[in-house]
Design a protein around this nucleic acid. Structure first.
Length: 200
DNA sequence: TCTACGATCTTT
DNA sequence: AAGATCGTAGAT
């Protein structure tokens, strides 16, 4: 049996939540995924964060209560899933970058054109596709039963850290910050290069 | 309104 | 190495 993560769990600094989300489970219908790689988009000092320039229509979910979904469309085709962190009124979230399939493999493969192996779930666009998400999931509470849910996993995962992917537009100190977190022992991790044992 | 482009992935 | 493909931000 598993338990839903609480709103309190998400009401912390994005980096802390990111560390604790690795190993947790995402569920949506027949699909269950074990989170293996995430990135923290922190508040207030993070120029890579979508909220860095203040509220907009797109980033509205990030300013809302913790434990909600923030989805956004990237490059016109990929739907990227974030989980909102920190207290309401602060714009922070954790991007889900990769996961390992636990249940619903056939459903995932159906959504991904029958692919197999880590290519199925390594990369944030693939995670969104595997879970069958779209922008209508914005604001959805993953701390409540029904629809997309986040459940606690087993603690004690060995973690590795590194710079976030695709944030070269940010200030160098933010682009280089080791705010990407992954399961050291998992093969379901994208861009393994750049990850080290040293915590930030 | 208009324009440029992105927290990406696939194919060449 | 480049194309797909569109919502959004920032400019006008």
């Amino acid at each position: 049996m598993t338990t839903l993560l609480s709103q309190t769990f998400f009401a912390r600094d994005a980096l802390e939540v990111a560390r604790d989300l690795v190993g947790a489970t995402l569920r949506h219908g027949p699909v269950a995924l074990r989170i293996t790689e995430v990135e923290a988009y922190r508040w207030p000092d993070d120029s890579a964060n979508h909220c860095h320039r203040g509220p907009t229509a797109r980033n509205a979910p990030m300013w809302g209560p913790p434990g909600r979904a923030y989805l956004y469309r990237c490059y016109g085709l990929h739907t990227l899933l974030n989980l909102v962190t920190g207290p309401e009124g602060e714009g922070a979230a954790v991007l889900i970058r990769a996961a390992e399939p636990l249940e619903g493999l056939e459903t995932i493969q159906g959504r991904r054109g029958g692919l197999d192996g880590p290519a199925l779930l390594c990369g944030p666009g693939r995670v969104g596709a595997a879970l069958g998400l779209d922008l209508s999931f914005n604001h959805h509470p993953v701390t409540e039963p029904g629809g997309l849910e986040a459940h606690a996993g087993r603690p004690g995962v060995r973690l590795v850290f590194g710079p976030r992917v695709g944030v070269d537009y940010a200030e160098p100190r933010h682009a280089a910050a080791p705010w990407r977190v992954a399961d050291a022992g998992s093969r379901w991790v994208s861009h393994r290069r750049g990850l080290t044992r040293s915590a930030p």
